[in-house]
């Protein structure tokens, strides 16, 4: 869980960096984004890493599912009264629920953009060299003209934030990294990451909706 989790954290940074280009909605920005999307789906090294990414997502979800089943079995009779708030954070107590929501979101998200980019019939535009390329930008912009779709993304980024709030620092503890000097830094960076990254992600659909 820790290794795949940390890998997925690094993916979030790369994904966010690429997607922030969507904020530039000028024709120039649209062209740059489409060229970036083409690069990301054709460059061999990126493709290789993307397979590692698919594996990590599936492993993280499947391993989490198995561990949750084992954990349920470890307590066959539930407490009549349990004061979870007294000793653990809400996020840490609901990682499986948060993770499941994220997985469902990923299916919707990938169906809408990843699948369309790879296998769908997309409009064709010209790049700076005059060559034809798929116009993913228009698909994204069209999706984020719908208010419910924007709302879904904003809510799911809040879910991601809570998942990261526990997950980020938890991954280090699982790997045995706990040190009086470094753990407070890891925890602070984790909280910062868990807030800033989802907020920036959520900013994209909101921005595109407002400027549609």
């Amino acid at each position: 869980m820790a290794l795949t989790g940390l890998f997925l954290v690094t993916f979030l940074v790369a994904h966010l960096a690429g997607n922030l280009q969507l904020l530039d909605m000028s024709p120039e920005g649209q062209r740059k984004f489409n060229e970036y999307a083409r690069f990301m789906t054709t460059f061999p090294l990126v493709k290789a890493v993307s397979y590692l990414l698919y594996f990590s997502i599936l492993f993280h979800a499947f391993d989490g599912f198995l561990l949750t089943i084992q954990n349920r079995k470890a307590r066959p009779v539930k407490y009549a009264k349990e004061n979870a708030g007294a000793n653990r954070s809400w996020a840490s107590n609901n990682m499986a629920l948060l993770g499941t929501l994220i997985l469902v979101f990923l299916v919707i998200h990938m169906k809408h953009f990843w699948y369309e980019m790879h296998f769908g019939e997309l409009p064709i535009v010209k790049d700076s060299q005059g060559q034809e390329m798929k116009d993913l930008y228009t698909i994204v912009a069209a999706a984020f003209t719908q208010l419910w779709y924007v709302a879904l993304y904003v809510v799911m980024m809040a879910v991601l934030a809570f998942h990261l709030l526990h997950g980020f620092q938890s991954a280090f503890q699982s790997l045995g990294i706990n040190h009086a000097r470094y753990t407070p830094i890891i925890k602070s960076v984790g909280v910062f990451f868990a807030v800033v990254v989802p907020v920036l992600f959520a900013l994209i659909p909101v921005w595109m909706f407002v400027n549609r």
Partner: peptide, 27 residues
């Protein structure tokens, strides 16, 4: 027994204040 997910609840409720640092050491 189940699997540790680092909620930290044990450390809070432990009557002897055993630290999560020891779980990291075990890991």
């Amino acid at each position: 027994f189940g699997n540790c997910s680092n909620t930290g609840a044990c450390e809070v409720e432990c009557p002897k204040g055993i630290s999560l640092e020891h779980i990291a050491r075990l890991n």
